[in-house]
Design a binder for these strands. Structure first.
Length: 505
DNA sequence: TACCTGTAGG
């Protein structure tokens, strides 16, 4: 049995947690615990606020609540960056009399382990369970991601001996797609040519390979493959053309005007070719082109295309509209962007927070505090859900403007929001406080972010470190250092090399 | 089990 061989986890955070005398130790106010039906709620709170391994033994069991398969998956998802704990958590569950683990949670664990290249452990686990084709596909994907393509192919070939059901063309497509996604298009084409006589081929497979060449910016090769596909009697579909279109539009260079125009012409050519073959462009086709216009700040073209697609009877989605709104905002045409918002609503599509973020970005560029705050207030008033990304845009804007009192207000709202601050929020805040030379506060938030499981960027640490040294804040620095040691966090070797020497002004 | 767009900001 594998779980007997796995040593208990020795992560510092976990070690510290398991030695606390009270099993819960939560500082937050939990709602009144109801053993019967509040497991979901409680778990949600615990997962978002604390290391979830903590709760598996303590509060839930304390209240007679057992883990449902859904909660097991949630927990594993939360543990996905901490493979050792994930593994011992899983083994711990599996050793119980009626394990709540499922094939899904098993696959989740396999993915977590394979992501950190624990391939031996993965193979071992697979060999002692009843794996599904998906299990192998996950492994294959992670092997390819790790650059071990040969092993991946061998795994794919060996898998059927472990399985009741053999791989189908669908699984073969997954293999080729993964190879292409990680840039091994040439290999994918080789594998395809080798086995097409046995496994066959379809439009999907060709589309995958065409996308692979587009990813490598080999548009000419992609086009050749498309002709080959047509010659061999397989009709391309709208997705095939969208892939090619996206390849052209993404690699398009935007600035020398002539180059941009040339790209617009090649995109138009794809549209023509589609129509010739009787394939109507869809929302995606238009979105791809609109995105290119938006990147090139071509608001006129953008509006024209939007009009055209509506004439053609294709309904734009929120994302389509957002692309155009973004383009108008980035061209400084805020009024027209607002008009477009109304048009959207008239079409029965509510703008998303991403749509409003375009406005915030423009306000930020204009240093328009009241404009930004007005919109923010409206959103909070029920206009639209304010998500963490919106908060981050706002934080960035007001940190840039040095309006720390507004930053504080927004931070307060962010803390109370559903998702709460993320790595970007903390990074932004700490950098802002450093810019204002509020070292102690910055340090407080730096420690807090680590405690909440966000690994700070090296540049954040460096900024704080330099600031603390230059302003001679020895005590604060020691506190920070202690925290880093506790969590075994290091930021490169250069800081270990130099013993701490406060800079004398 | 993802054949295609969309974040944000370089």
């Amino acid at each position: 049995m594998l779980h007997q061989k796995i040593p208990p986890p020795t992560f510092p955070l976990l070690r510290r947690l398991s030695t606390t005398t009270t099993p819960t130790g939560f500082s937050l106010n939990l709602p009144k615990l109801e053993p019967s039906n509040d497991a979901e709620l409680i778990t949600q709170i615990l997962i978002t606020n604390h290391n979830p391994f903590h709760f598996t033994e303590s509060p839930l069991q304390l209240h007679g609540i057992s883990l449902s398969p859904h909660l097991v998956n949630q927990t594993l998802l939360r543990l996905r960056h901490n493979s050792k704990i994930a593994l011992s958590f899983f083994q711990h569950l599996r050793s119980s009399p009626s394990p709540p683990t499922t094939p899904t949670s098993f696959n989740l664990l396999i993915d977590i382990l394979a992501k950190v290249r624990q391939f031996d452990v993965v193979r071992h686990l697979i060999s002692e369970t009843d794996p599904s084709p998906e299990t192998f596909l996950i492994l294959v994907k992670r092997l390819i991601a790790a650059g071990l393509t040969r092993q991946a192919l061998r795994t794919f070939d060996d898998a059927p001996t472990f399985l009741q059901t053999p791989f189908t063309l669908h699984h073969f497509a997954f293999l080729l797609d993964t190879l292409c996604k990680y840039g091994h298009t040439r290999l994918a084409v080789g594998v395809f040519n080798e086995r097409r006589s046995v496994l066959g081929s379809d439009a999907k497979i060709y589309t995958i390979l065409i996308a692979g060449w587009c990813k490598l910016r080999r548009i000419d090769t992609a086009e050749r493959l498309l002709s080959e596909m047509i010659e061999s009697g397989i009709e391309p579909n709208v997705v095939t053309y969208n892939v090619l279109l996206n390849g052209i539009c993404r690699t398009a260079s935007l600035h020398p005007e002539e180059r941009f125009e040339k790209n617009v012409r090649s995109a138009e050519k794809v549209f023509d070719e589609m129509r010739e073959r009787g394939i109507e462009p869809d929302v995606t086709s238009f979105s791809i082109v609109l995105h290119m216009y938006s990147r090139a700040h071509k608001s006129e073209l953008s509006l024209d295309k939007l009009k055209l697609m509506k004439v053609k009877g294709i309904s734009p989605t929120v994302e389509t509209y957002t692309s155009v709104v973004k383009c108008l905002c980035s061209c400084g045409r805020l009024e027209e962007a607002e008009e477009l918002l109304e048009e959207m609503v008239g079409d029965g599509i509510s703008p998303s927070s991403a749509t409003y973020n375009c406005f915030f970005k423009e306000y930020k560029g204009r240093k328009d505090v009241s404009g930004a705050m007005d919109l923010y207030k409206k959103m909070r008033g029920g206009l639209c859900e304010v998500n963490t990304r919106t908060y981050n845009v706002l934080l960035g804007a007001f940190v840039n403007l040095g309006k720390m009192e507004i930053v504080e207000e927004i931070w307060c709202d962010l803390r109370g929001s559903v998702t709460g601050p993320d790595l970007d929020s903390y990074t932004c805040l700490v950098h802002g406080l450093c810019g204002k030379e509020k070292w102690r506060e910055a340090c407080g938030y730096f420690v807090e972010m680590i405690e909440r499981g966000f690994l700070p960027q090296k540049v954040t640490f460096e900024t704080l470190y330099k600031g603390l040294i230059q302003s001679n804040k020895l005590r604060t620095w020691r506190r920070l250092k202690k925290k880093l040691d506790e969590e075994s966090i290091t930021f490169g070797s250069e800081f270990q090399r130099y013993p701490f020497q406060p800079y004398k002004r």
